[in-house]
Amino acid sequence: MKTEMTMETAVQQNIELTPKKKRMNKNTWQLYSLAAIPILLVFVFSYLPMFGIIIAFKNYKYNLGIMGSKWVGFDNFKFFTHSTDFIRLVRNTLGMNALFIIFGTMAAVLVAVFLYDLKSRNATKVYQTILITPHFMSWVIVAYIVYAFLNPQYGLINSIIQSFGVSPKDWYAEPKYWPGILTVCYIWKHVGMDCVVYYAALMGMDNSLIEAAKIDGANKKDIILHIIIPTLLPLITILTILKIGNIFRADFGLFYQVPRNIGKLYATTDVVDTYVFRAMRVIGDMGMSSAVGFLQSIVGMILVVATNKASKLIDPETGLF
């Protein structure tokens, strides 16, 4: 009886729906009209610059325009790859990002495990709120904070080490300290946000595993080693792989603001993104700047696609596309 009723209504609806072809067309048209402006905006601001890549093969002069400037083939690329900057940039960009991936992940996992172990939900909330706060600050603010600590004349760190009898250091003139300083800044700003994913994974974990292990006499160390770490490992692997995909893209804000664009520190703080900016803005070499940007974009694309494939092999549910 019931199925008959539904059949009947369905037939009725079908009859009603048949002459609706015209209205469906209007609706489809409306869908396209909704999409039109966003598509246009993406075209203007993302696709048009892609055509501008030919600047990398030209000796660009403002007054001649893109078309009028002279072709120089691969000269811009050769100039860059043969310069001493090349090695330094690759080393700094890869090296610093590797430090961020290794220590950033370790810190995030550690904090997530600690949060998971906390019994009091209220305390967890308070701690999490505080730990996330730096995420809301710009790198400009972080640069001020770092300056307040490291200012060679008045900085807090120098007064502290002086009270221990160590002579004050000119932090903004010694490149060797900066890989460490920048890693600390990275972790300080991101750990609260980065640990959220791991914390969520732990919260979603089957609690009975831990209960059973406890009954079997497992201690804290066993639980962390044999239950918590194995639970997080797939997630850690995948997030790390995806981060490796972006290893040639540096966080411009961190590397530009925090070392305050000081030339003496370039040995360890200059990365591809800051170099591209400087080549364009300070040196005014548009051709070379876009050549470096182009190289970065191509290598970045290959890495992202490859790492996405890799993460999909491990877990088909991940990856972007």
Binding site: V42, S46, L48, G52, G65, Q296, V304
Partner: peptide
């Protein structure tokens, strides 16, 4: 069309020239 812009971009210089010289 959208996804590709996450993979590849024109970079700083072309964007800068587009915004200052053309737009």
């Amino acid at each position: 069309y959208l996804y590709f812009t996450m993979l590849f971009n024109g970079g700083l210089v072309p964007t800068y020239i587009l915004i200052t010289q053309y737009l």
